[in-house]
Design a protein around this nucleic acid. Sequence first.
DNA 1: CAACTGTATTATCCGGAGTAATACAGTTGT
DNA 2: ACAACTGTATTACTCCGGATAATACAGTTG
Lengths: 122, 122
Amino acid sequence: MFKIELDGTASIHDQICSEISRLISVGVLAPDEKLPAVRETAKALGVNPNTVQKAYAALEKNGLIYSVPAKGSYVAPGGMAAEAVKKEASEALRTAMEKAALTGVSRETAEEIMNDIWGKKG
Amino acid sequence: MFKIELDGTASIHDQICSEISRLISVGVLAPDEKLPAVRETAKALGVNPNTVQKAYAALEKNGLIYSVPAKGSYVAPGGMAAEAVKKEASEALRTAMEKAALTGVSRETAEEIMNDIWGKKG
DNA sequence: CAACTGTATTATCCGGAGTAATACAGTTGT
DNA sequence: ACAACTGTATTACTCCGGATAATACAGTTG
């Protein structure tokens, strides 16, 4: 069972989405692996089941998981999920970069930050 | 007078903040230049004066502008404002990159996006 | 003095977030 | 067959932040 710390300013179901997305992309949650039940997750997180359901529904809408009534929710098969997550993350990164560029942040500055995070190239 | 399109999902005063920040960093709003009055901006944007005031207050808190009661609000002097904006934007970019890295986005992918936005290096 | 400035206060409305309590239909293990 | 689980759906309620609205005050400016 995964753990999530509800810290941020974002809504709880958004945070659940993000964390599960991350776990999928990193591989902690494998393709076709069964996710904890809605009620179980809710209990583990000390959160209302409806909130978790909202998160799962959003994940399914984005193609990260698929749900089978009366059976469970599963990570999308064949690496589709991981790809979807990275695609989402890439788009978010693009948006952030566009915004930064709009406010005058230079490419050099962006590269420096990149080196801090991914390690210097070469 | 500047224009702002209230599109995003963010709150109005946040959008006003962002747009004024951008205009400052780019140089459209020069240091010590007087900003439009709260009521004037509100009217131009079709928005409540209180909302604009909230935006101006936040901008002042972040050191981007300074307000003189009964006189007006002005862009912070000596390029301080532009620097503050770029610093903020850089931090936001760093946060976005960290999140992307966490979800498995590779440096190569990030570089590609960077090339799209800032132009290819070299 | 009139018209403007930023600032402050209070009240109200609306929508989303979150909670709560159910209910239903289908699966699964015993 | 039955109990216990699954996802899904519905309805109602509370709470809080965003936004609006209507003022009021004090100080500046022409």
